[in-house]
Design a protein around this nucleic acid. Structure first.
Lengths: 232, 232
DNA sequence: GAAGTGATTTCGTCTATACGAAATTATCGA
DNA sequence: TCGATAATTTCGTATAGACGAAATCACTTC
């Protein structure tokens, strides 16, 4: 008799629609903060009316992809999490492939991947990943889930919360806003860059940080888009 | 003053939906025979109910993408043709890229491209095309429209209509059916192959044809999926 | 504990796309 | 010219996903 084995994640019977995949991905992301994803936060993230989100969340819950306590927020079930990670893998492999192989500018890859992630087959994504040597991180430093839904969920501190006087390495930058991404690129704040936080003005003020030997002042909004690990 | 210039095809204000792109592509294809695309032919091609096609055709006509004479059939307008060729270019560039660069099997590229063609941006398609050296034909031998909607519309005869005793070159094979494609591949009937038609049984019977030094018998259905140009 | 405020849900509605059943039109053969 | 048959359209309806307006709930503040 074959030994017992965890059932591997399997493609769902009815493939998920693009909107559904977008909801699940957004909920996964919001949940990373620890709290359930609220209707309003989802509506803002997806630029939809809260009423629309309310309806969709109820539908997804009835399909077993979410647990939803009305007025409290939504959490992914195990199934929902698997689906979200499948989409996240597609997204991040696509970002990596487009940037590395096809030379798509790093502030454009997010938007392009956002469309393609709903259309590419799993085996195509695997081919792309293999062509890249199965990378563990995408061009923005975000970890790429494996085929089996394993992903590094370490939450690094943002540059805005990083203790003054400390050195660290940029681990990731948010890929959501291309303008922001271009700005961070100009500041050399890319994954792998070494930084040294010199000072932070009070009341959410600007932060003085050494990047590549240059002292920069960066605002709190941009700082929150950059995640740092302390240097050993 | 700058010299007068044809207005280049421009992305439509409201991007077309995936179903609309599929209809336009199918109508373009059916129209290549010379006659307008009929409702039933479209329904079969798209595996939809004729009633559904009827409704959609009326809508597309009201949007100026088609001319539709009820009970007679539909033809693309100039706008419709441009849109169809944009989709066709995406499809064929994707097929070429997937097969050539990513090693997706010959008989799978069609299905994969069918999905991706609705999601990939024009500039991504152009990047892929450039990476391939702007090929003129896709892996099945179908001509790839240029960015400006220029395409070779030469209609070659099918192997089923090819005169007995003549030599020719396989120009293209239909990409629609993966099983058929695998079969034709086994017979070495790929674009570029030299063939010599030896005999054809009457009443739509099998055809004797030399391919790569081997005499093959192939049925009329498969023969109609292969297009040939006479050798000079 | 009551009131107010902001978040959330409910309700009625809209659009795009699809369907089956029934009605209509075109065409071919007698 | 008259049907018969096949193709096509019309009609009523369904589903997914979205919206705004109005109702409801939760939490803070008095």
């Amino acid at each position: 008799m074959t030994p017992a084995r965890r059932t591997a994640p399997v493609a769902p019977v009815t493939p998920l629609t693009a909107p559904v995949e977008d909801y699940l991905k957004a909920i996964y992301d919001l949940e990373q903060g620890g709290d359930p994803a609220t209707t309003n936060a989802l509506a803002e993230r997806l630029t939809l009316a809260p009423a629309s989100v309310s309806g969709m969340v109820r539908r997804l819950a009835s399909q077993g992809l979410l647990e939803h306590e009305p007025y409290r927020g939504a959490r992914l079930t195990a199934d929902g999490r698997i689906a979200a990670l499948r989409t996240l893998r597609r997204h991040r492999v696509l970002e990596s492939y487009l940037a590395t192989v096809l030379g798509v500018p790093w502030d454009d890859v997010h938007a392009e991947a956002e469309q393609l992630e709903h259309a590419a087959s799993d085996t195509l994504i695997d081919r792309m990943a293999r062509a890249l040597g199965d990378p563990l991180f995408d061009p923005h430093g975000a970890p790429i889930p494996t085929r089996d839904g394993v992903v590094d969920e370490t939450r690094h501190r943002t540059l805005a919360d990083f203790p003054v006087g400390t050195r660290g390495t940029v681990m990731s930058v948010s890929d959501k806003d291309p303008v922001m991404l271009r700005y961070l690129g100009e500041l050399e704040l890319r994954p792998g860059a070494m930084v040294h936080v010199q000072a932070r003005a009070p009341y959410d003020g600007p932060i003085d940080v050494m990047v590549g030997g240059v002292l920069r002042q960066i605002g709190p909004v941009a700082a929150r888009a950059v995640r740092i690990a302390a240097a050993l």
